[in-house]
Design a binder for these strands. Sequence first.
DNA 1: CGGTTTTTTGAAGATTGTCAACGGGAGTGG
DNA 2: CCACTCCCGTTGACAATCTTCAAAAAACCG
Lengths: 257, 257
Amino acid sequence: MNHSQLHHTPDATHTPCAAHEVHEIHGTHCSAKDKEQKKQATRQQALCVSHVPIFRSLSYESQVQIEHLVHHKHVQREDVILSPHDAKGMLIVENGQVRVTRYTTDGKEHLQTVLGSGDHVGESWLFGHSNDDTFIIADKSSDVCFITAENFHNLLVRMPDLSFQLLKATVYANNQLQRQNSYLTRTRVKDRVMAYLSDLSVGKENGIIAVPVSWKDIATFLGTTAETISRTISALASERRIEKIDNSHYRILKSRA
Amino acid sequence: MNHSQLHHTPDATHTPCAAHEVHEIHGTHCSAKDKEQKKQATRQQALCVSHVPIFRSLSYESQVQIEHLVHHKHVQREDVILSPHDAKGMLIVENGQVRVTRYTTDGKEHLQTVLGSGDHVGESWLFGHSNDDTFIIADKSSDVCFITAENFHNLLVRMPDLSFQLLKATVYANNQLQRQNSYLTRTRVKDRVMAYLSDLSVGKENGIIAVPVSWKDIATFLGTTAETISRTISALASERRIEKIDNSHYRILKSRA
DNA sequence: CGGTTTTTTGAAGATTGTCAACGGGAGTGG
DNA sequence: CCACTCCCGTTGACAATCTTCAAAAAACCG
């Protein structure tokens, strides 16, 4: 089953949009401003693949070659982009935002990750793994492109540097998953939430974080419920471990728990 | 923070030891018999790297080249092979078994994964990620080898096929993590355990599984405690969802929960 | 066999999920 | 601008689940 979530390569040397945000639910994605710049660039070059970190370092010829294999698609909010057992391949978010979810047998939606511009998902489908339970759904109006497993696999074999770039991205995704695991293996929800918030705050000098998605989504991400998240946040606030700024911003007061 | 767990490439075309076991805590590793064969092979060729799936498809010359960069080490049970902030690089298990663990701030050991022959860990360290909390400890008397990040990185750049092989392995590892996440995000421990056991049983025609490690380790893997695992297993047995064969073998009666 | 570790079991208390109700904010349409 | 709806977050109460601590039983290892 399943697939992989991908994000910006964390240590790419010259990605225009900063990518050192630490593992959020989000694949770290670019600021609105960056997106604007990219959008304009697209219009000029007409190369969607140039947005994508793993392709950016390839030669222009290679990029043109890849562009020919790509299927573009514009999707609206809540459109189902991919269902289990659909055609296999890799999905790339040109711009916008999509959610990768899994439905449990009791019908609940479990958020796996949210992808932003330049993020991609489906590496594992390139290697023959099947998708039994993963849906990809547009979070907002977005442009996405799709490369079939077969085509992409051929690319990988023919373009060594692409393997390296994709490896880098996959290793990064791996880190994110590892990190999520480190939250989830804590038995206390309070510990999970605190660890999650602490990680969100690394690199922000004032310790202020913007909560990226709804409580409900964070809840499924952390293996609990929205109500428990709500209560836990209150508890953390009254323990002076975090401080509420407004509805979506918090300051993290003690990183180490 | 972290590293990556690696396993056999799942769909390698000609790995001598079958590798389609689905994600256990273990990296899928070879049977004792296979290990024996490998051991002998080593003695003859003196090439440790030939054991390792990601190196096996490379030319003999490449393998010799790699072998020169490798540091070998024999370790006893409970030896600490690597601590946080040690030299970075990739660790490969030639034969034996090692455990990758993380220590929480309250001093508890959290098992991340168990690696068997041919498995490797540390891809993320090759890309500059630091290791703040991961220990690698010998589970039994083992032979391991180590390649420094710098050396390995050079290899990757010089040997395109190696990137592809490592990508394959990393994507597979990614799947394992994804899978572990899918267990952990269930709120009920019973669901986590059942999903875990079900996955262990896929591919076994009789549904009989061998529990790979102690309850305690499975407990930390699934974000709970040994006592709860014990009780949960009993409950599942009395619900006729699993059946105890002996102390380390169970038959899974209903895969779908 | 003796010593050590792991598993099982019990009981108590804490944590968490569930169900239900309420309030506020965003968006819609009049 | 207001009424309305819908969704999300909050809060309360209760039941279920889980952790913890302790102790006994079983399995493991040399």
